[in-house]
Design a binder for these strands. Sequence first.
DNA 1: GTGAAAGCGCTAACAA
DNA 2: TTGTTAGCGCTTTCAC
Lengths: 335, 335
Amino acid sequence: MSTIHTVAARAGVSSATVSRVMNEPHKVRETTRLKVEQAMRELDFSRNSFAASLASRRSNCVGLVVPHLSSAFFAPLVNEIENAVSAVGSYLAITCGKNSQSEVAGGLQFLRQRRCDAIILYPGELTDQALADILRNNPHVVVIHRTVPGFEARCVQLDNPSGGRLAAEYLLGCGHRAIGVIAGPNSNPESMQRLAAFRKSLRAAGVKLPASQVVEGDFHFESGRQCMAALRAAQPALTAVFCLNDQMAFGALNYCRAAGIDVPSQLSLVGFDDVEYADLIQPRLTTVHHPVAALARTAAQLALRLAMGETLTEAQGLLEPRLVVRDSVQPCSKA
Amino acid sequence: MSTIHTVAARAGVSSATVSRVMNEPHKVRETTRLKVEQAMRELDFSRNSFAASLASRRSNCVGLVVPHLSSAFFAPLVNEIENAVSAVGSYLAITCGKNSQSEVAGGLQFLRQRRCDAIILYPGELTDQALADILRNNPHVVVIHRTVPGFEARCVQLDNPSGGRLAAEYLLGCGHRAIGVIAGPNSNPESMQRLAAFRKSLRAAGVKLPASQVVEGDFHFESGRQCMAALRAAQPALTAVFCLNDQMAFGALNYCRAAGIDVPSQLSLVGFDDVEYADLIQPRLTTVHHPVAALARTAAQLALRLAMGETLTEAQGLLEPRLVVRDSVQPCSKA
DNA sequence: GTGAAAGCGCTAACAA
DNA sequence: TTGTTAGCGCTTTCAC
């Protein structure tokens, strides 16, 4: 494979000129630029990015750590990040961390070896403490989907409490008073934030949410089924259930169908995220829209700014959720 | 940031030894290995992968070219490939090609600069001719989801005709004779292969499939809606429709719902791929299962073998689809 | 088992 | 505008 030296020799210039043609073409006279480009074509030259990165100390690479790529939530997120990153000529190195702290650490180490100009980290179940350590030691990391105290400038996140409130107010407005919750893992801060705000809104309306009406899921379909079964067994009189993501809402719906419970006439259901097929299932799912594309774009922009050597100081605002009313909630008949 | 030289100095050895500790630890005495590892920890050393790749001429990187990451079809595919690649300590560099020939070429060029040890290419709408050129010039490329004549050893694909046959035979077995098709783009060979086999099976049973009963879609949801509308307008007497992917089947279903056509009692529907939520919608979609995970794993294995310097010679077998019978097809009442 | 030294292919002063 | 040159941080013979 040819190098800038072979190209230089063929074009009758020095290798520095060849390098300039690639990096600062305006600094070289057009006639010699044409000669060099001609030589490149003839030799089927392709720049070795390792050598370039080694010498320039820039990788043109943004690293991404996510639990996995296959869900309706992560796939669009990653897709959007890829678009933003490749739009500026950088590329994305993806590492799947499976949520666990050790795997995330491994992924980070991996990306560090690649000398990524910036890294976008989805925290999964990592604690704020662990994240703060990471952010402190890695000035070019941005966290997506969490705000770590003390590092607000490098965190972008949905306003989770606002999302919880939206769901609560809508259900209350429809007259529901006996409400259950299928939550995410207790170790998941995002879920807990939504739930806390949800509970607070209910309380403000004089509605109680005892522990027996809240079951802990794991954000996956199957868990939604099982939680719904458990909830139904323990609390048959509930008229509505709030699921902390759509995937679990689908599971819950699936259980209801199998158990002969009609949604929404016998039971109302609200999801969270508004993934692509929330609109496709029957009944169409009423859910809290999570602006994932905006989240991804914002994170990518921050990462790209860090990659350019900028230091971020101003705190990022929270992204606003909004309620998408479809068909899975009905006014409470017992209202 | 520390280098092997700082580490070497601190451990009182040469840099060659530090390199050996990372790459061939068995070739260095345990006591000196421990000393070196200690020094690495103290200096928070992280190997510069660019320098390593430059010197060793191996990138430990597998490239992937796909149209995008966000669909229910591609997300699991990419996820599976990532798993396989990271399992052997390599990493995945992803490029989204948006299907077009020029974008794919750009992606390939991009990956070439990264000196990927191997590349997995999803061909989108590229012609066999274009693919053959790429394969000829790039011995370390594997094509996924297509078999390019002359390069069978580096192609892994579903048995598309078999899939088309499965759908046809099932529909025929249910007594359907007036059958429509929502196809993929005419430029898409996979879709055409399925359709040809589907048509052939119908013909063998004495059932005709005139052009007026086949509409061309683009594999997306919205196109499924529109094609269903068109089909229904032109051919109101159809009792069943075969959709060449699930996404379009969802669109078709959506149209039927809006138009008051009950599936399956008034119209039967068969999809293709069996994506995650084929099982979640109502009615559950009867569809041809596409073993995407196996496809991905096989492609990744081939790529990894190419990365090891192997030359692939034996032709890869086709993956077998299978019919998943759920609720969207009913025996034809006019049978 | 360990070290010396010559690159890998490029970038980035600095000179000319 | 172009060339000279000294690295970037690692791997890899080849000696010892």
